[in-house]
Design a protein around this nucleic acid. Structure first.
Lengths: 230, 230
DNA sequence: CATTTGAAAACTGCATACAGTTTGCACACG
DNA sequence: CGTGTGCAAACTGTATGCAGTTTTCAAATG
C-alpha cells in the first residue's frame, strides 16, 4: 500500500482542512460514491486506520457518521460494509428522488432569480455540444451540475439537504447511466423541457418534467444495478 | 466513578438492548425532542459520560451520530450543542415537511391497503372524543400516530426515513402546538379532510389537504418558537 | 474603572491498551 | 469422509492517557 508519509502530509494539505475524522468521512464517502469501494464490500477498522495512517478512534467515528448518512451498514461486533440496499429499498430511493426533484423543479420555476435562470439556460445550451461530441464523461459532469442548480434554485436549504443526501446514497447504483445508447441525446431533450418550463415560470409543468426525467434514469439504473448484482 | 459491574449489567438488561452507543443516541435524542435539553444548550462529553456512567469514547460516537442526524451542532474543539437553527432554516424545514406530508398523503390515497384505510379512519373517528374532552396530551399522542400512519401508508421506505428524520429535527420547535385556543378542533377538521380524500382515493386532494394542514401547524409553531427565542 | 494579559483549569482530539466477541482452522470423533 | 469441538487469531467495543486547544479568571497596567 502506497502509504508514504509524504502522501499523507500532502493529503492533509490538499484536501482542505478540517479534523481528521472529517477528512476521512469525505475520503471514504468519495470512494463509495465513485465506486472504488463496491456495495457489500467489507471495511475493517484496522485496514482503514493503517491505510490513512491514523488510529482506530477517528476511523470508528468516521464509520459511524457514514452509517448515519446511510452510506455504510453497521451491525454490532461486525465490520462495517458499504451499504448494499435491497431492490425494494433502491426502488423507494429512486421514487423519492423523483418526488424531490419534482419539488425542486416546481419551486425553481417559482423562485429562481433572473441570474439563476439565465445561467441555467446558458449551461444547458452549452451542453448540446457535449451531446453531439458524444462526450460521456463531460456530459455526466454537466448533468450533475444541472441538477444541483435545480436543487439550489428551490431556495430551500432543508430540501437541498434531503435531496443531496438521497443523491449520494443512490450514486453507487447509477454509475454508467450514460453508457446506454442514445441516452445522452434523450437526457438533453428532457432537460430542455424542464428548462423551458422553468424559464416560463410554469411550476407544475417543470415539476412533471423533472419527475419523468428522473424516473427514466431510475428505470435504466435499476436494470443496470440488478443485472450487475450477484 | 461509580462503575460497579452490577450497575453495568443492570443497565444492559433494563434499558432494552443495543450497543452502549445506540442507547445513548436514543436517550439523548429523546431528551432533545422532548425538550429536556433546549436548543443551544451545551453538552460537554465529560458530563454526559459521568451522567450515563460510561467513558468518553461512546459519548463521542453518540454525539457524532446525533450530529449527522442534525440534532446537535458540532464544531472542532468546541462542545456539542443542541441544534439551534436559524429562523430561515426553520422555515425551510417546515416547508419541506409540508411537501413531504403532501407526498405521503397522495401516495397513501393511492396505495393504502383496505386494512390501513379502515384503521386510519377508525383512529381518526375515535380522536373526536379527545377533542371534545379537550385532552391536549392524548390528542397530541393521537396526532403523532395519525401522521405516522400517513408516512407508512405511502409504502416508500426512503420517504418514510426522510420525513421521520425531518420530524425529529422539528420536534424541539413545535412543542405546545395544541396550547393555542381552538387548535384541537381545527386540527381534527383538517384531519377529516385528509382522511376523506384518502378513503375516496383522491390523491391530489389528499396531498393538498395535507400540505395545508402542516403549513398551518408550521405557522403557529414558528410564531411560538420565535417569541420564545432570546 | 476599564482593559489587557497570562497562566491555570477545563475540555476536545487522537492514540493506545485491554476486554469481549466472532471467525477460521485443525484435530478428534463418529 | 463428514461433523462437531475447542483453541487461536482477528476484530470490534470501551476505557484511559496524553497532547493540544479553548476558556476563564484574576492580577497588572493604563
Amino acid at each position: 500500500m502506497q502509504n508514504s508519509p509524504v502522501s499523507q502530509i500532502k493529503r492533509r494539505q490538499v484536501i482542505r482542512a478540517g479534523t481528521t475524522v472529517e477528512q476521512m468521512v469525505r475520503a471514504i464517502a468519495d470512494m463509495i460514491v465513485t465506486g472504488v469501494l463496491a456495495p457489500g464490500e467489507k471495511m475493517d477498522e484496522i485496514s482503514l486506520a493503517t491505510r490513512f495512517d491514523v488510529s482506530r478512534t477517528p476511523v470508528r467515528e468516521a464509520l459511524r457518521e457514514l452509517g448515519a448518512m446511510g452510506l455504510v451498514d453497521r451491525e454490532p461486533n461486525r465490520s462495517a460494509v458499504v451499504a448494499n440496499v435491497t431492490e425494494g429499498y433502491l426502488h423507494s430511493m429512486f421514487e423519492a428522488m423523483s418526488e424531490l426533484e419534482a419539488i425542486c423543479a416546481r419551486l425553481s420555476a417559482e423562485r429562481m432569480t433572473v441570474e439563476e435562470r439565465r445561467s441555467l439556460e446558458l449551461a444547458h445550451r452549452a451542453s448540446a455540444k457535449l451531446v453531439h461530441a458524444g462526450a460521456d464523461e463531460d456530459y455526466a459532469a454537466h448533468n450533475t451540475e444541472f441538477h444541483t442548480r435545480l436543487y439550489r434554485g428551490a431556495h430551500n436549504d432543508h430540501i437541498f439537504e434531503l435531496v443531496t443526501q438521497t443523491r449520494a446514497r443512490l450514486a453507487p447504483f447509477r454509475r454508467a447511466q450514460f453508457r446506454l445508447p442514445g441516452r445522452l441525446a434523450r437526457s438533453y431533450d428532457e432537460h430542455d423541457v424542464i428548462v423551458t418550463a422553468i424559464m416560463r415560470g410554469e411550476a407544475a409543468a417543470a415539476g412533471h418534467a423533472a419527475y419523468s426525467h428522473v424516473a427514466i434514469v431510475s428505470d435504466a439504473s435499476i436494470v443496470f444495478a440488478s443485472t450487475k448484482r450477484n
